[in-house]
C-alpha cells in the first residue's frame, strides 16, 4: 500500500521522526507561551537559553565529567538562575511598557550570549554523546528507531503535560495566574508578585534548558543552534495562539508531524511549510488556533 507514492511503513517512520522534532517545538514553544501568557514578555532570548542549555551540558561533561542524567537535573537550574538574574536586573524595569521593549532587550541579550559563545568556542559543533543506556536503536519493522529519540519524545510529553497541569489545574498555577492577571489585587491578598514573576520567567528558561540538553546528543552544539530554531518556534506559538499553553503543546507536536510529512513529499519545502501554515491560520483565526480572540 502506498500513500503519496511512498510505502506506508516508510511514511510511518518519517512521521515518528516528525514527532521527535515536534517534541522540541513543543518544549520550546511551551516556555515561550508560559512567559508570554503570564508576563506579556516576548522572550527573544529563548533560543539563546536553549543553546546555553546544550552548552552547559557539554561543559559539565567536558570539564566535570558529569553524566547526562546529572546534567538533566542541573542544567535547568543553571538556566533558571541565569534567567532570574536577567529578570531581576533588567526585564523588571520594563514592566508596564510596550512589549516591544522587552522584545528588544531579550533580542540584544540573545545576540550577546551567542556572540560570547562564538568567541569562546568558535562556530564548529562541540561533541556530546547520548548516555550509553540510550545509545542503541530498535528495529520496529518499518524503521530503525534510535532509543534516544524515543526517550526525547516521552520526556517532552511528560514535561509538557506536567506544565499544563501545574498551571491550569493546581493551586500554584491559580496563584500565578492571579498574580499576573491582576498584580495589585494579588498583592493586597498578600502575594509576593515580583517573586512570582521572576519564578515564572525562570521556569520558562528552565524549559528551554531541558530542550537544550536533550538536543545536545542529536543536534549540533554550536552558538547559533538556537537562532536557527527560534524563528520556527515563534511561528508555532503564533499558530497555537500567543500565550495559550495547550495551544503551544498541540501545535508544537502537530507541526513537527506536518514538517516530517513535507520532508517525504517535497523535502525542499520543509523549512517553509510551518510559515505557510502560519499565514493560513492567521488569515482565518488572527488569535491563533487556541488563542482567545482579542
Amino acid at each position: 500500500m502506498e500513500i503519496f507514492g511512498i510505502s506506508v511503513p516508510a511514511l510511518a517512520g518519517q512521521l515518528l521522526i516528525g514527532l521527535f522534532n515536534g517534541a522540541f517545538y513543543a518544549l520550546l514553544s511551551l516556555g515561550l507561551a508560559v512567559i508570554f501568557g503570564m508576563l506579556r514578555i516576548i522572550n527573544f532570548a529563548h533560543g539563546a537559553f536553549y543553546m546555553l542549555g546544550a552548552f552547559s551540558a557539554y561543559m559539565l561533561s567536558a570539564y566535570l565529567e558529569a553524566s547526562f542524567w546529572v546534567s538533566l537535573l542541573i542544567v535547568p537550574l543553571i538556566l533558571a538562575a541565569l534567567a532570574a538574574v536577567l529578570e531581576r536586573s533588567m526585564l523588571q524595569r520594563l514592566a508596564g511598557l510596550d512589549p516591544l521593549y522587552g522584545l528588544l532587550l531579550t533580542f540584544g541579550f540573545a545576540l550577546i550570549l551567542e556572540g560570547g559563545m562564538q568567541y569562546v568556542f568558535g562556530v564548529a559543533g562541540q561533541p556530546y554523546s547520548p548516555p550509553a543506556s540510550l545509545s542503541g536503536a530498535s528495529n520496529l519493522g518499518f524503521m530503525f528507531m534510535p532509543h534516544y529519540r524515543a526517550f526525547v519524545i516521552v520526556v517532552s510529553l511528560i514535561v509538557c503535560f506536567g506544565t499544563w497541569l501545574l498551571i491550569e489545574r493546581t493551586k500554584i498555577g491559580s496563584i500565578l495566574r492571579a498574580a499576573t492577571e491582576n498584580p495589585s489585587l494579588s498583592e493586597v491578598f498578600g502575594l509576593n508578585v515580583p517573586v512570582l514573576i521572576t519564578a515564572t520567567y525562570a521556569f520558562g528558561a528552565a524549559l528551554a534548558g531541558i530542550a537544550g540538553i536533550m538536543a545536545a546528543p542529536v543536534f549540533q552544539v554550536s552558538p547559533y543552534m538556537g537562532s536557527n530554531l527560534i524563528i520556527v518556534v515563534f511561528a508555532v506559538v503564533v499558530i497555537g495562539g500567543m500565550g495559550s499553553i495547550m495551544g503551544a503543546i498541540i501545535s508544537g507536536f502537530a507541526l513537527g508531524l506536518v514538517e516530517g510529512l513535507t520532508k517525504v513529499i517535497y523535502s525542499e519545502a520543509s523549512n517553509v511549510v510551518v510559515f505557510v501554515i502560519m499565514a493560513i491560520v492567521l488569515y482565518f483565526r488572527p488569535a491563533g488556533l487556541f488563542g482567545k480572540d482579542a
Binding site: A10, G13, Q14, I17, G18, F20, N21, M143, F144, R149, V218, F219, Q220, M225, N228, L229, G260, K263, V264, S267, S270
Partner: peptide, 8 residues
C-alpha cells in the same frame, strides 16, 4: 537541524 528524514 535534523537529517534523520534523509538518513532514514
Amino acid at each position: 537541524n535534523d537529517m534523520a528524514s534523509a538518513l532514514l
